[in-house]
């Protein structure tokens, strides 16, 4: 399984990446929404199953990225999770309405991310094995 991490912070990409690698994923990275769209386009049919998306980024923000992904029928299979410090209720509602499946608020612990993967059915093993 592959996951795309979209975040303008290299540090955050590494943190999320490490947790996902431990959960059995291979990682693709992008520093903003536009770069992420380009990465997806370059994959052809071999798409990542998950994208973890920051909200505030230069060039193209995460909400726009999610809206763009949802417009492409061939990208329907990608599970989208916002991973962002944007934490107001209306932000979460907007992201879900735009097509995000889950929403993880920064700061988070590794366990919390793993539990979200479990909710999304993207964990090969049970949460208990990771705690």
């Amino acid at each position: 399984m592959r996951a795309l991490i979209v975040d303008d912070s290299r540090a955050m990409r590494r943190i999320v990446g490490r947790i996902l690698v431990d959960a059995g994923f291979e990682i693709l990275e992008a520093g903003d929404g536009q770069e992420a769209l380009d990465v997806l386009a370059a994959q052809g049919g071999d798409l990542p199953v998950l994208a973890c998306v920051d909200w505030n980024m230069p060039v193209m923000d995460g909400l726009t990225f999610i809206t763009q992904v949802r417009k492409q029928v061939e990208w329907r299979s990608i599970t989208l999770m916002m991973v962002t410090t944007e934490s107001e209720q209306d932000r979460i509602v907007r992201a879900l309405a735009a097509g995000a499946h889950e929403y993880l608020i920064k700061p988070f612990t590794g366990d919390a991310l793993v539990e979200k993967l479990d909710l999304l059915g993207l964990l090969p093993t049970t949460v208990g094995d990771h705690s």
């Binding site: 912070s9 505030n56 962002t84 410090t85 944007e86 934490s87 107001e88 920064k106 700061p107």
Partner: peptide, 9 residues
Amino acid sequence: NVVGGSVKG
């Protein structure tokens, strides 16, 4: 950024 997001929220 994360501190700022928490405060802003």
